[in-house]
């Protein structure tokens, strides 16, 4: 029983970390722009595709150890998807900013379709194999139920989150992002180039999303063009649960949602005497979404967003 619990716990942490990484993108973008970036799930999907393309290319060239090929491809995927995020904000969202909050959001929905279709057309709609980054072997020390891939995902995700926290709290660029999230008007009066803070957020958010996608594809060993849709919605739920706009909230929300989902799914069949099976897994996330919206719309760590900020943004 304990082994089973440990296995589920590691699974919950790994999947929760992935939700958390994606949720960070939703929450940071919402923070600086009050925009729900409906295209965000597609950055998650693009990560593994771009990684695989680069990795096979580098491997084909030879000359480097495969580990290095892999490392280069990971970093390059972050950068490429990040730059794509910057470009999409610049050309698909920014020009619509003057027309209220709905217009960029509709544009985001459109971008989601564009990106997903682009992969569908170029690579194909069917699921394809994702090359393993780390060989998946059970770790004997942990009862043989936990794999190297699971631990690798957890470690990488925590590293990225700590890095982000240090960046946002300890650097001038990070302070710019937090200042812009609080008020564009005040930030601009202080000499902060708000549009650069926005671009920075649109680099980091999609980049982290791509990393989460690579982790997810490593876990299941496959990828497909639609993989960002449901996961994207779940991560959005995690962001809402933690309090949209709050960076620690997104991390907390991700881990909490992972735990609710994994343990809920694991124990549901037992509790319901087998009537409700594990196929109900997706129900948990959306039940959480509805409950949070009903009873605590600001989320666990969220601050109520003042209308003043929104008005000030339009004004500016």
């Amino acid at each position: 029983m304990f082994d089973y619990f440990l296995q589920q716990l590691i699974f919950a942490l790994a999947i929760g970390a992935i939700y958390g990484l994606i949720a960070l993108g939703y929450t940071m973008v919402y923070g600086v722009m009050r925009l729900i970036n409906f295209a965000h799930g597609e950055f998650f999907m693009l990560g593994p595709y771009i990684y695989t393309f680069l990795f096979s290319g580098l491997l084909g060239l030879g000359g480097l150890a495969p580990v290095l090929d892999s490392a280069i491809a990971i970093v390059a995927s972050f950068v490429i998807v990040g730059l794509l995020g910057v470009a999409i904000e610049r050309f698909a969202y920014r020009p619509l900013r003057a027309y209220g909050r709905l217009a960029p959001m509709l544009s985001a929905l459109g971008m989601s379709i564009v990106l997903q279709s682009a992969v569908r057309v170029t690579v194909g709609p069917q699921p394809v194999h994702f090359p393993a980054i780390v060989e998946s072997t059970p770790i004997d020390a942990l009862g043989g139920m936990v794999t190297t891939v699971q631990l690798g995902i957890l470690a990488a995700a925590v590293l990225l989150m700590v890095g982000l926290a240090l960046f946002v709290n300890g650097t001038r660029l990070g302070i710019w992002i937090r200042a812009a999230s609080e008020s564009w008007t005040t930030s601009s009066l202080l000499g902060i180039r708000v549009n650069r803070a926005v671009s920075l957020v649109f680099f980091i958010g999609p980049g982290l999303g791509a990393m989460a996608g690579i982790m997810y594809a490593s876990y299941y060993g496959i990828m497909q063009p639609t993989m960002g849709s449901v996961i994207g919605l779940k991560a959005f739920t995690a962001a809402i649960l933690g309090g949209i706009g709050s960076i620690p909230g997104a991390m907390l929300g991700g881990f909490l949602l992972g735990a609710i989902e994994v343990f809920g799914t694991a124990f549901l069949p037992i509790l319901s005497f087998g009537y409700i099976g594990t196929e109900y897994r997706d129900v948990f996330a959306f039940a959480v979404l509805i409950l949070v919206l009903l009873f605590k719309p600001a989320g666990l760590l969220g601050e109520t967003v003042s209308e003043e900020t929104t008005v000030a943004k339009k004004d500016y």
């Binding site: 302070i175 710019w176 937090r178 200042a179 609080e182 009066l189 180039r193 500016y316």
Partner: peptide, 30 residues
């Protein structure tokens, strides 16, 4: 506005407009 401030014309606005979620020193850094 940000370019005007960067030229050396600062504006300390009505109602202070402190960034409430930042610490005192982070406000200075901002």
């Amino acid at each position: 506005p940000e370019e005007i401030t960067r030229l050396g014309l600062a504006h300390c606005p009505e109602g202070r407009q402190i960034l409430q979620r930042l610490t005192v020193e982070e406000n200075l850094l901002a």
